[in-house]
Design a protein around this nucleic acid. Structure first.
Lengths: 328, 328
DNA sequence: TTGAAAGCGCTAACAC
DNA sequence: GTGTTAGCGCTTTCAA
């Protein structure tokens, strides 16, 4: 491998320029260990003057710390990685890590046999962010990963979680549907095995019970295609449904397409609401009522927590807000 | 920093198990330098038996090579990073790098003063993938980056380029519009400064001239909002327009929304076509005719080329195929 | 074809 | 407070 560019300025250079030892320079720069005010200043000056940039690779080697943040998405097949939601998450992680000189990797984690040991053993891995986490995944987290793994969705005693307030979002949407006169509200759910989508179903059941409304659940899988199919099934079974709450916007767009095929007017005959507020929710016809999902913020917080090895509360919940549009 | 987990198996262990020196083991594993067939086999066996994984950090330090792939998106403001297209690109890079133990970083590059030197000097940077590249950006690529930088879009003598066949896609779409009887075709373009979108405009002009059709260009910026505004402007100026070709699907969805507001039937009164074939192109109403854009493949190829420091042809073009749906 | 030895640039014990 | 001294795990001359 060729050396590109001239020799970089090293800690050695800084130390020499400041008239101290490498160790002292290191202490000042990393902020660990003691140093007299004078030396501190001289080292800092040297750093500035030489435009010294610590070599992160050497640092990582000496620290035995990795240099990439792995976004591990749990799923039944590698194609979970094709989801725009994943893309958004990775992009957020890639942006959050950049200032730390840490890159993001995207990996599929088999739902049945999550190979988390490999990640734990891989010295290039600085930390892991779990997506679509299941109980089984959490159980498979090796202790070597403790302190540098977080989950988006459900967490555990050893794995802190960061998530949007799913329950609150569902409640807000359903209350809105109820308030606008809907009484036969169906829900298209996420995949059964994905716990992060359970809470919205719980909210749905609770509110239905409280208001004395019927429970009409159809299983989806977060995809528009399934939302589309599920809607046809739903209309066959409960033709008088007057609102559909979809677990996410992609599903809701599928719902909208199916209703159109079926000749139903939205929101005249039937209202539709989603969740996530993806960019295209505003562009569908009719524009989709939904609730916001601050993915970027969530991932940013999660990534930052991992990178700082910060002690975080076991659960951090991000608020969601209702976005009213034409579909309800 | 704490050491997590037990000591990893190192090259030393492998060498010992194989009864050779570290140097020899290294040669066999990296595939550089000579080694007798017997030694080769013994080292390989040891690797397998011990489940040895090279420490990428140490490797990077010894090689003086970085460990992250930077996706540098040129734009006027950091918010270019919010584009779903960027997200897709980063995700693809993050997935492509994972097997190499290389993560992806996402960074904004100012169009006016691209700080590429910083990237060149940063030892943690293994390579750079330029997005939305301009001539000025290419001119600013420091020689220290040669061989480990590629561009998605236009390239230069020193920067190889990977891109979709923009011209071909435009031609296919416009021919399709013409073949279906459209004769007053308008185009909503991308931002003026973005050369990667020029080729489709060129195709548009060429075909219009060849067929004796009027040229009706309106400037957009890849966003749905601008597509929306541009359409209203366009209809005011040329009310008899019978087709709109949008530079990308996001723009086309904005066009669709504007036409709906204006009471025009699609495709009855006016046809609409986009480009990219994003997931939601199939879900709009009417579903959008477009042409495919294999972003994942392109980025994968680009990333792989950088990671392998492979000598690639100056320009690699990926084919696009027409996707006919209801909007035309 | 192989091994010894010298780094890559940094951090962290440990002694002063 | 500060410097000396060992590494971190790998690659790569250079001799043999």
């Amino acid at each position: 491998m060729k050396a590109w560019g001239e020799r970089q300025t090293t800690l050695e250079d800084v130390a020499k320029a400041a008239g101290v030892s490498r160790a002292t320079a290191s202490r000042v720069i990393t902020g660990t260990g003691p140093a007299s005010p004078v030396t501190r200043d001289r080292v800092r000056a040297a750093v500035r003057q030489l435009d010294y940039q610590p070599n992160q690779v050497a640092r990582a080697l000496a620290n035995r710390s990795g240099f990439r943040l792995v976004i591990a998405a749990v799923g039944t097949a590698p194609r979970v990685l094709d989801d725009p939601y994943m893309h958004r998450a990775v992009a957020a992680a890639a942006a959050a890590g950049a200032p730390y000189g840490v890159g993001a990797s995207l990996q599929w984690l088999s739902r049945d046999s999550p190979r988390l040991d490999e990640l734990a053993e891989d010295r290039s891995v600085r930390g892991v962010v779990l997506l679509n986490t299941t109980e089984a995944t959490l159980a498979a987290v090796p202790s070597a990963l403790h302190g540098r793994v977080v989950s988006i969705g459900i967490g555990s005693r050893t794995v802190p979680s960061f998530d949007v307030d799913n329950g609150g979002a569902a409640t807000a949407i359903l209350n809105h549907l109820y308030a606008t006169g809907r009484r036969r509200i169906a829900m298209v759910t996420g995949p059964q095995w994905m716990p992060c989508a359970w809470r919205s179903v719980e909210s749905y059941r609770r509110l239905a019970r409280a208001a004395g409304l019927p429970v009409r659940l159809v299983a989806g899988d977060f995809s528009a295609e399934r939302g589309h199919q599920a809607t046809h099934a739903l209309l066959r079974r409960w033709p008088d449904t007057d609102a559909v709450y979809a677990v996410n916007d992609a599903t809701a767009l599928g719902v909208l397409a199916a209703l159109r095929e079926d000749g139903r007017q939205v929101p005249g005959d039937i209202a539709v609401a989603g969740f996530d507020d993806i960019p295209f929710a505003a562009l569908s016809s009719p524009a989709l009522t939904t609730a916001s999902h601050p993915v970027d913020q969530i991932i940013h917080a999660a990534a930052t927590a991992v990178l700082n090895e910060a002690s975080v509360p076991p659960t951090v919940v991000f608020p969601s807000t209702l976005v009213r549009r034409q579909s309800t």
